[in-house]
Simulated scan of single mutants.
Amino acid sequence: MNNFDWSQLINPEFYILMELGGIKIGLLVILFIIFAETGLFAGFFLPGDSLLFLAGIYSELLTQQISVGSDFVNVVFLASMVSLAGILGNMVGYWFGVKGGSYLYNKKDTFWFKEKYLLQSRDFFDKYGGKAIIFARFLPIFRTFAPIVAGIASMDKKKFMFNNIIGSVLWSFSMILSGHYLSALFMDKFNIDLKSHIEYIVIIIVLITTVPVIWKLLKKRVHI
């Protein structure tokens, strides 16, 4: 702990390589973060997309304690567990929106919550309807508040669950499989180990996922 650096909290590799008493707990930490990002709306500041992409790169390490010997099955299992965590997280977010989400509009801003994020997610939901639950999975901040807004808007439960499952599966499988197979491709074709270039990968993914959001917000401000 003496070597702990607070900047590690925004480094996805830190969570993947985390150990407790000599036991690797990276998989459990990842599942909790994905759940908390929507279920507890407390992980919006975490690099969710890059976390899953890196999870694909480190899939062998993350699944070594439960490995069945097949690389493909291990990766699919990892992506399936992440999908389930995302589905459960969205369900809790939706439930919170139904039961008491309206009070958030009167809640004071804190580090964990900002009203502008809720309002932006509501506009996003109004524009795309049920599909917003799917699209939001690929957009930081929006994926945290979209299920809450869906609950506040009393979105049909079956419709919500359908889009929730589709969005979570598409997001987790696309990010994890991309990380896993691109890592293998770069190693086989170019002899480049992506694990040695994690910083650049994180920066690229953050830019890809946040630039559209920033552009949308700036464009909206111009029209105001």
Rank of each mutant, 00 (worst) to 15 (best):
L46V: 01
Y181S: 06
A85P: 06
M18S: 10
M161R: 03
G151L: 13
N164Q: 05
F14W: 03
I198E: 15
A79W: 11
S178R: 02
R221Y: 01
E37S: 06
F124C: 11
L78H: 07
Y181D: 11
P47I: 03
F145A: 03
I192W: 12
S102Y: 10
K216N: 12
N2G: 02
K108V: 06
F77C: 07
V169A: 14
I66D: 09
L218P: 01
D126F: 06
G56S: 05
I214K: 11
D193K: 14
P147E: 03
I141C: 03
V76P: 04
I214H: 10
I214V: 15
I33G: 06
K189R: 13
Y181A: 12
I205Y: 09
I34W: 04
S154K: 15
V82T: 08
L17D: 10
G26S: 12
A55E: 11
E19K: 13
F35I: 02
S80I: 10
F186M: 15
Y15Q: 05
K195D: 11
D109Q: 03
A153W: 07
L182H: 07
L20F: 15
V68E: 13
L88K: 06
G39M: 10
R122K: 14
K131M: 04
K157L: 14
S121N: 07
K24M: 10
I176R: 05
S168A: 15
F138A: 01
V29K: 08
F45G: 02
F44M: 09
L9C: 00
F41R: 00
V211C: 10
Q120L: 07
P147F: 04
I133R: 00
A85C: 11
F124N: 09
L27C: 09
N90G: 12
L119Q: 11
N3I: 09
D71F: 14
L194I: 14
G129V: 02
N3V: 12
M187R: 09
L17K: 12
V82S: 15
V73C: 07
G21Y: 05
G48S: 07
F142N: 04
L31N: 08
V211D: 11
A42C: 13
M81P: 09
S67R: 13
K131T: 07
L207G: 15
Q65I: 12
K159A: 10
T209P: 08
G26H: 09
F186H: 11
I208P: 09
L17W: 01
I176Q: 08
D193H: 09
L46D: 00
P147S: 02
Y117P: 02
N106T: 02
I16E: 01
F77P: 00
F138Q: 00
I57P: 11
K114G: 01
V211N: 04
I224H: 03
V149F: 05
S102W: 07
V149E: 08
S59K: 12
V92T: 14
T210Y: 14
S168M: 03
E60M: 13
Y105F: 15
S121K: 04
L62G: 14
I203F: 14
I152H: 07
K158C: 08
M187I: 09
Y58D: 10
Q120V: 02
L119H: 07
K24T: 06
L54G: 14
I141E: 05
F32E: 03
D193P: 12
S178M: 14
F72T: 15
L54V: 12
L51F: 05
